[in-house]
Design a protein around this nucleic acid. Sequence first.
DNA 1: TAGTGGTCTAGACCACCAT
DNA 2: TGGTGGTCTAGACCACTAC
Lengths: 272, 272
Amino acid sequence: MNALCSNTRMNRSSTILSKSPAEIASSEQIGLPHAPTFSPLYQQIKALITQSLEAGEWKPGAPIPSEVELAARYKVSQGTVRKAISVLAAENLLVRRQGKGTFVATHSEARAQFRFLRLLSEEGASTAYASHLLECRRLRAPAEIARPLELKPNEPVILIKRTLQFGELVAVFDEIWLPGNLFRGLTPERLAAYHGPLYGLFETEFGTRMIRASEKIRALAADAVVAAALRVAPGHPLLNVERVSYTYGDKPVEVRRGWYVTDTFYYQNDLS
Amino acid sequence: MNALCSNTRMNRSSTILSKSPAEIASSEQIGLPHAPTFSPLYQQIKALITQSLEAGEWKPGAPIPSEVELAARYKVSQGTVRKAISVLAAENLLVRRQGKGTFVATHSEARAQFRFLRLLSEEGASTAYASHLLECRRLRAPAEIARPLELKPNEPVILIKRTLQFGELVAVFDEIWLPGNLFRGLTPERLAAYHGPLYGLFETEFGTRMIRASEKIRALAADAVVAAALRVAPGHPLLNVERVSYTYGDKPVEVRRGWYVTDTFYYQNDLS
DNA sequence: TAGTGGTCTAGACCACCAT
DNA sequence: TGGTGGTCTAGACCACTAC
């Protein structure tokens, strides 16, 4: 029935977890013949670790238990735990440091700063920037925002408008939309007082960690409002970046529309 | 001295390869104290497999020897070969198919078609397109092309100009620069006769396989020439994509400048 | 049925880091 | 010195694909 049935070695079939992996593996179709739904042990362990991350059992930046400890906890071999952790590290949820331990990844780190901001100066350097808050208010979600956030129309959302300034140059204008219910204590004062990457604030103060994002990039002419914010002429060509960010379980938790001035900066992308 | 000295188990120190891994590992600094230059066995195996790929021992689309065979050939355990192959598969150089074997990745495959063309229609579909050759000639490399291709100024290069048409819409204008010495038999006739992805042609006919690429993306206004090719008004906002593609050993082998009409298409990018 | 890649284990040893 | 992650092995068994 469940995935573990095919694992016949004694220590396999006797696997007992606080939350049984059988419970996880069997949650998929039951009556379909010839649909094996085989789930490797390490993927089940990975799911358990992800649950602990999502539940906040280990905080961003903090170490998780050692591989030996986790192997004992889940009653599997160290190698199986290693494989699960390796996948999570490849997905940027965990960071392994030889000799020290495995840590929960965090956006409040120099390393991760530019993982979600691919704007580089002409010399190829990731430049420091300053954020300027223009607006932050709560409103009811318009349809085109509610849809990607998987909210009902008119549910509360937070709208943040800001610019990013690199040296003298205002290069980015952002409209950031967040589900109001997930970010209850987010006020203009709170935002203005915070310095650092927004995603760092979100994960430490609101328990919402951005895992991945998907961007749609276009070129368009600046309208009057955006042109004023970016100090360019209306009609100036701008890079338009529409991002949807996701947290655990592929749940969308942010819509971000950015307008980039790419006269002396460019959006960097590596294909591999 | 070399990296294998630290591997003391008998079957480790007795490792003998047709091309000794010691030779590879020892090619780095010798006199520097406290600089270990430890190179895991699987990375040395990976380098050997890469050499065979580069030398064309196994052709694109063809299977490489089984893990057991490679383990015997390199006199290491199957697990070590597995790890080396896993890394190469993660880098898209190999493709593993359970029950069938491991195959050399190829651009002449539906799977790989849109790995290097991230242009999607508004509905999110990767649409079929037709390529129209505008120009193909040999000339001496201008400085701004010679530099990224790591050629001497005035070395021969091939310049290809083309458009890509999605249904009725001409959405892409490309300028493609290739090292003349690597693509000797590349003629306009040859190009016009070929239908399919260019990178497929390059790997099957010229033995040059594109491994990865790096793109710089900007928004700019269409100039007269590009506007005419794309059937838009001069000044129309266009996405400008400057790509450098690399083959084995991070050797640059293509510079590509693209101009995309993003009124009904967009450039898709996933951050993770 | 035979061969492939995929999973899992157990144990040994290494490199790195803190103390 | 002891603990962490990293490498490597040997062997068993499983899932998938072909013949």
